[in-house]
Amino acid sequence: MSEVLTRVADGTQAPHTVSVAGADRSGRGRAVLVTVLKSLLALVFGLPLLFMIVSSFKPDTQIFADLGGVRAFLPVGDIGLDNYTGVFDRVPFAQFLFNSVFISVATVVGGLVVNSMAAFVLARMRFRGQKVMLAVILATLIVPFEVMALPLLWEVNLLPYFDGVEFSQGWLDTYAVQIVPFIANAFSIFLFYQYFDTIPKELDEAAMIDGAGWFRIYRSIIVPLSGPAIATVAILTFLPAWNQYLWPLMVTQSEAVRPAMVGIDYFRQLNVSWGQLMAYASVITVPVLVLFIAFQRSFVNSIASSGVKG
């Protein structure tokens, strides 16, 4: 089924439109109808986000005054950056953003290295217990994180933590506790495994004749050939890492390590300025939206390939 992902969504696949002779006239009417329907749906999916961004530039009074009409979605009236400056005054927003970026990037980079190495061994070498290991990895895929979140919280609170100087007990309130548990990922290993398996084994053979060791084969042959798999895993790791909420909510207390998603809770507790809330939400959302639009094809291919395991 892996050919699915290569064909998906790149738009080159022939459309499934079947024109029956004599149905042309109704076909044109249908096309108009379909376009209208698609546009209405685009409004349903796009307008709330547009509203969020537009409202981030308006004071609360203006937001409420504009609600009933089309002005709610237009940057008109009393427009300014007050909400943005307000957000930075009110919470340590720059720190939150840095924490989010650091945690997501570290998780992605660590995950790429660790999972691709494991998948390389599973896909290209042969040893006893290999099938069983792969089966265990696949079996864990149906266990949602939420099932083990609370036992994991208990566990990390008991693990020894090394801060570079000395050991202490408990990982709570650190960067490590937000990164390390999410580096090894069964699904990433599976995606890499699937991709590595398609690369001809003769390459290993040839490299070995030239005297290359296994690690060299991994680093100089397999990794450079695996661009699409790397992009897929990077995207599928980045999104959940950036969007994490439940876990950092439980394991972080200090603002020094808290990510932006949890920081948004401050606005629920303080008396709400909706405009500032929208500004905060826009800052943590728009960069991801821009990344998505820029790398749209990779994103969609990644998601589509996540369906291949079915």
Binding site: T17, A31, A42, N243, M261, I264, I284, F292, V300
Partner: peptide, 23 residues
């Protein structure tokens, strides 16, 4: 289908997915 704008519509329908559930 191969109608014009398919890419545009797919992108718009997909926007909420890349927006975090928190936001």
């Amino acid at each position: 289908s191969k109608m014009r704008g398919t890419n545009f519509f797919r992108t718009v329908y997909f926007l909420p997915v890349v927006t975090s559930m928190v936001v």
